[in-house]
């Protein structure tokens, strides 16, 4: 699902979350993961207030919601940039040099993975296998996939988004 963070106002995000919760409210604990995923799509990350809202909406404890959020690396409690860069650190990408790709992205943007640039344009989020092992090493910037990467290709790729 596309990330819709930028296009919505705070009120619209709240409205969207309320819709998601009314849709899944009856599922209780069973619906938790899906609601968290959808909420992260709406907000770009899972602020504490949103986790609290989800707990109340599903009738599960806030501690349990936070337990799940902090367990899965997919979920983030920190804001995400307009462009989320996911460098795959799955086995295939890793043996093909993904670590060097990640480090290059970090130095180019001046942030560490898990962080967001001050202008809220980029954030880096290492991820596990995205199922494109034939193209290893790969990274995704939002929904765009880049394969067979080398560190020297990174600046040109990032430049496209910096200008966008």
């Amino acid at each position: 699902m596309a990330i819709i963070v930028k296009t919505l106002t705070q009120d619209e995000k709240k409205q969207k979350l309320a819709e998601v919760l009314s849709q899944h409210g009856a599922e209780g604990r069973q619906g938790l993961i899906q609601v968290l995923q959808e909420a992260q799509n709406i907000y770009g990350y899972l602020p504490l207030e949103v986790q609290r809202e989800i707990a109340f909406g599903l009738g599960v404890s806030v501690a349990e919601v936070y337990g799940v959020v902090s367990f899965y690396s997919f979920f983030s409690t920190k804001p995400k940039g307009e462009y989320m860069i996911s460098v795959c650190l799955g086995t295939a990408c890793y043996v093909k040099g993904a670590q060097a790709i990640l480090e290059k992205v970090e130095t180019e943007l001046g942030i560490k993975s898990g962080e967001c640039t001050d202008d809220m344009k980029f954030s880096i989020n290492p991820c596990r296998c995205i199922g494109a092992c034939g193209l290893a090493p790969v990274m995704m910037i939002n929904d765009d996939v880049y394969g067979r990467l080398t560190a020297d290709k990174i600046p040109a790729i990032l430049a496209k988004y910096k200008e966008a």
């Binding site: 504490l48 986790q51 599960v60 806030v62 501690a63 349990e64 936070y66 337990g67 367990f71 690396s73």
Partner: peptide, 24 residues
């Protein structure tokens, strides 16, 4: 805590970083 249906304690984080405590 869950049996009391209060649930202020939970497992937090993952792997070696796992801890038990309240939300956030």
């Amino acid at each position: 805590c869950q049996k009391q249906e209060i649930g202020v304690l939970s497992f937090l984080n993952r792997g070696f970083n796992t801890s038990v405590g309240p939300a956030f």
